[in-house]
Design a protein around this nucleic acid. Structure first.
Length: 426
RNA sequence: GGAGGGAUGGCAGAGCGGUUGAAUGCACUGGUCUUGAAAACCAGCGAGGGUGAAAGCCCUCCGAGAGUUCGAAUCUCUCUCCCUCCGCCA
């Protein structure tokens, strides 16, 4: 959520800024609602003040043993009037809130203009795609050719499309990847490992911005009296750890790394990436989350992105870093770097990590604050998160990039300790 | 699943339906005292919102949500969470 004070004082400025994100801010509606709100709130509070004063008078008069019937009749009429005003005010406030919750965060100034991913700005590349002198196999061919490997058919039987069963050394490689990522971030990058619920309530999803706008992307648990959801990313439970908290400055920055499954309905992506495990309803991810003081957040995004890059480098996977353009930027984000890994079978870079800065947008929704020593007051923190990395897609990248002519897979050095020293899968 | 008990400020813990946003203690901050510290004493010390240049003023909040009332931390209802005992279970 944007700062309501800012939204009400400079709606035109914000409207201009949001054009970069292809969002049309309804300035007129906002102004009308705001005017009504101001008037109603003033009236309501004045009325409440008067009622409070009168009620206290009654108390005093009774204590003094005086007759109160006269004041009583005077105050009685106010009750109905107050109720009416309150209702009106509540209605307007709900409208304002509903609208505000649907307004995206404003992009950073350095975010490039553009409509979609084709307008994203390449920042850097790392590594060089191998020159394959034979016809490369994609991860599906590689995984299915193994006696114990990727098994999509079984997953369809068990559940449906967009799921996978992994067996044998592939399952182990997948586990190794997650372990390796988690160990690197905790041992080398200073993150604290957290293990969190994979099911969250609505408040948590409102806090990080998935609700109310992206309800259809979530898996909701069927339960007659509980509105629970499967997490679409660890960002939700991990970031919400600080919801409704006031954090003392000595605890900042908070750095969390969490390995969880992620569940996404993928509504609206029919026919997209239907082959293989690029786009699944369930996948695993190691997520990095930082809760920081506002002045340090821009640097923290750079650092966090480098932490994610480190994983790709250790795995010897060629990738590039892009800065998302306004049109491709997510609802809550101010700025996002995507890391895209090279997939030889597609002869293209594909997203494997997304690292975003939210400034106080999520913090405001969550009421996540820190005590600023300069003011002594609670102020909103800034939040940052990024994949470090998506485990399923990393598996795909390892299989495809480290294959040999016979369809065997070289195990990257950094994973061997997790694989009992195994050098090759095949 | 069954039977009880509870939820108040950073923590502990009072609170008759009427100047209670809330006693008291601890913690914390500032001051006095002291060579310095401790102790003692004095003072301050919750959050959200509105308005205002600011000081200030006003509204709301005692787990959440409804209700009764001129007036609710205090009364009623619903829900959530926590604790104890029994049962079941990884």
């Amino acid at each position: 959520m944007l700062d309501p004070k800012w939204l009400r004082s400079e709606p035109e400025t914000i409207a201009t800024l949001l054009k970069k994100k292809k969002f049309e801010l309804d300035v007129e509606l906002l102004k009308d609602l705001e005017n009504a709100r101001k008037r109603l709130q003033h009236d309501t509070e004045a009325l409440q003040n008067e009622r409070n004063t009168r009620s206290k008078e009654i108390g005093k008069a009774k204590a003094a043993g005086r007759d109160v019937s006269e004041i009583l009749t005077a105050v009685e009429g106010m009750k109905r009037q107050l109720e009416h005003k309150k209702e009106e005010l509540f209605e307007i406030q709900e409208k304002l809130k509903t609208y505000s919750l649907g307004v995206p965060n404003v992009p950073a100034t350095e975010v490039p203009d553009g409509m979609d991913e084709s307008d994203n700005l390449q920042i850097s590349t790392w590594g060089r795609p191998r020159d394959f002198i034979w016809e490369v196999k994609d991860h599906v061919a590689l995984g299915e050719s193994l006696r114990q490997g990727l098994d999509f058919a079984s997953a369809v039987k068990l559940t449906g499309s967009r799921f996978v069963v992994m067996r044998g050394q592939i399952a182990r490689l997948h586990r190794a990847l997650a372990q390796f990522m988690l160990d690197t971030h905790t041992d080398e990058h200073g993150y604290t490992e957290v293990n969190v619920p994979y099911i969250v309530n609505q408040d948590s999803l409102y806090g990080t911005g998935q609700l109310p706008k992206f309800e259809e992307d979530q898996f909701q648990i069927q339960d007659k009296d509980r509105a629970y959801y499967l997490i679409p990313t660890a960002e939700v439970p991990v970031t919400n750890l600080v919801r409704n908290e006031i954090i003392e400055p000595e605890y900042l920055p908070l750095r969390f790394a969490s390995h969880t499954p992620c569940f996404r309905s993928e509504a609206g992506s029919y026919g997209k990436d239907t082959r293989g495990m690029i786009r699944q309803h369930q996948f695993e991810k190691v997520e990095l989350v930082q809760i920081v003081e506002p002045t340090t957040s821009a640097d923290a995004l750079e650092e966090l992105t480098q932490h994610a890059e480190k994983i790709l480098q250790k795995l010897d996977l060629p990738y590039r870093k892009v800065l998302l353009c306004g049109g491709d930027l997510g609802f809550s984000a101010v700025k996002t770097y995507d890391l895209e890994v090279w997939l030889p079978s597609q002869h293209a870079y594909r997203e494997i990590s997304s690292c975003s800065l939210f400034n106080d947008f999520q913090a405001r929704r969550m009421q996540a604050r820190w005590r600023n020593p300069a003011s002594g007051k609670p102020e909103l923190v800034h939040t940052i998160n990024g994949s470090g990395l998506a485990v399923g897609r990393t598996l795909v990248a390892v299989l495809e990039n480290h294959q040999d002519e016979r369809g065997n897979i070289r195990v990257p050095d950094c994973l061997r300790p997790y694989m009992n020293g195994l050098e090759e899968i095949g």
